[in-house]
Write a protein that binds this DNA or RNA. Structure first.
Lengths: 342, 342
DNA sequence: GCTTGACATGCAACCGATTGCATTACATCC
DNA sequence: GGATGTAATGCAATCGGTTGCATGTCAAGC
């Protein structure tokens, strides 16, 4: 049977032909009643819509897509839905897409390039545009897809491809300044994935500003970045003798906080911690001083850029930077006297 | 121009006709080389595929969907992506769908029935099945959609519609028993949305088990359930004189923890807190005793049921219950002597 | 040698819309 | 009154596949 998968349930959905027959016009007219009512007399539009309503007719998106090439779908691929960094971004992207009448496919690559590519292959045929957040794909691959469809990247910096970058450098610099003012002279950067653009950017910002202010900085890895690895980083950090740490992200910072608590190190009295992303709000204990990264805005802006690209505008490459600032809460304080006086 | 939206970028995608022409066979044969290779001679299949490869031909999903009625898409609508309860569920659902070769549309209703319906309307035409998690839609609406497409609900109990319910009752009962054993005699339930199935279920479980063990329970609302409202609930709870509280979810519990800390109430020494859902792991301070709700499993099972429904099987109604258990961490302890001895 | 059937492939209708190009009916203008 | 224009609608091709049925080929069976 041909109609197998179509409408397993009650009543086959009415088609344009049925509406046409009942309202005594051609299929073209019914189509226009929905897509270009201005072309028809008001009377006809009214009559057709009334019939459509009575029959419960809804234009078939798939058929429309085949003939127009526009299906009103976009895809968003993230590396890990469960990382608190993404949900606000996803939400904002959704919202923007919704307003534009678009449906969004969500893909979760689980940080695996192979999976990411699989998803991409599945999506590409049925979307008008793509947003890749923190893509782990290699540059060549990304370029191939970008050649087929409008595509925008989030937190990945590839020349010639529209991208939105959350520029945490200003916030990170402010954080270092903040620590310096509090008297810290020796700090640690708890680093994230080496392949991540964000991590590189943050590391560089830390180095640069620390050098400027004459602070010493050591790097301690937390890979993959998570609560658990952050927690494990506490011991080596304490052993290293630094008085403050700035972590790759909030999750790592939160783990670090827990690790410090377990070692009986009082935060912020004897040690200061700064996070990055500001996705946890005040929910940590103590509330985390962190670099606000506006991840929601990133989702919103990315979809906006995608839209304008889909509509033919904005053909040139765009490199949109979102800046950041420091949010001081309660996990940072004056450097402990013992070390400060050294 | 007709081809407007189609392939704005380089090289129009090759179609079945081009492959047919180049390989010197009919379009039907090319189609079959992909969908029913067994029908063709091995030699032909090989040749066609070689040509397709060289041309970079990929079957157009949209066209295929129009003619077969199967597009391999499903939709998942949640009430709030940003609530930590959902991401693990989304992730699990994705994973399962991926394995079955399906793409998933994600919708975020933001707890708003009107938005939920809008999304549903947009999705219904291009999916083969739907999963609604914590739907806020009224029953009649849901039934209408369920009549058009296979549909499964998560945490919503409507007769006749396949649903997966995270049964937190056993875990909640265990939590009450745990508190009773610790000597608490008077506790609070910090309640969530009145329209939520989960909330009703949890409230009832608390009442029942408390009655059985002779505990007194009062209800204090935290609406909408969030860190903020949980925090605000701390004051009235302390004022009420209870020695322990069980919260609608982990977020509320986490807020409550913060509110108590702000009031200088020591947890667990002078007050015990239990959460629900177990989505925060050990990341709270102190680590939260909570009812594990296996939200990831719910996503996985829901997609599984949807699949079997889509494939014609499992026509009868299914009511799948996922059970729960108590995870004891560090936010619960013996009731304080002062009150215990009363 | 002719029938029969299996196998491989092609023909053409179809899925449900959109749209360029008629066609028709009037109104307007010299 | 005939040329011209305009507004409303229909015709039929098209989008890119899938599939029921017809056709052709070749080998086995009688």
């Amino acid at each position: 049977m041909k109609r197998d998968g179509r409408e397993q349930r009650s009543g086959i959905a009415p088609t344009i032909s049925q509406v046409a027959k009942v309202s005594g016009v051609s299929r073209a007219t019914v189509s226009r009643a929905f897509t270009r009512p201005g072309m028809l007399s008001e009377e006809t539009v009214r009559r057709v819509k009334a019939v459509a309503d009575k029959l419960g007719y809804v234009p078939n998106q798939v058929a429309r897509a085949l003939s127009t090439g526009r299906h009103g779908n976009v895809a968003l691929i993230v590396s890990d839905v469960a990382n608190p960094f993404f949900p606000p971004m996803i939400r904002a992207a959704q919202l923007h897409a919704d307003k534009a009448g678009l449906c969004v496919f969500l893909g979760n690559s689980d940080e695996d390039p192979a999976r990411e590519e699989l998803l991409l292959g599945r999506f590409i045929g049925q979307v008008e545009g793509l947003v890749l957040a923190s893509s782990r794909l290699d540059e060549a691959q990304i370029r191939i897809y970008a050649a087929r469809r409008p595509l925008v990247l989030i937190n990945r910096d590839i020349e010639g491809i529209t991208r939105v970058l959350i520029d945490t450098a200003p916030g990170v610099e402010a954080a270092i300044a903040h620590l310096a003012e509090l008297g810290h002279r020796h700090i640690a950067y708890v680093s994230g994935p080496t392949t991540s653009w964000s991590n590189q950017q943050r590391r560089n910002a830390v180095r640069k500003e620390a050098a400027k202010r004459g602070l010493k900085v050591i790097a301690i890895p937390a890979r993959p970045p998570s609560y658990g690895t952050g927690r494990l980083a506490a011991a080596p950090i304490v052993a290293s003798g630094v008085t403050a740490a700035i972590a790759f992200d909030d999750l790592v910072a939160q783990g670090l906080l827990a690790g410090l608590a377990a070692l009986d190190v009082d935060v912020p009295r004897s040690f200061s911690v700064v996070g990055c992303d500001d996705v946890l709000g005040e929910t940590t204990y103590p509330p985390l001083t962190t670099v606000s990264a506006r991840c929601a805005d990133a989702g919103d802006v990315a979809v906006g850029l995608l839209l304008s690209q889909m509509n033919g505008g904005a053909s040139g490459e765009i490199r949109h930077k979102l800046n950041s600032h420091l949010v001081v809460r309660a996990s940072t304080g004056p450097a402990p006297a013992r070390r400060k006086s050294r």
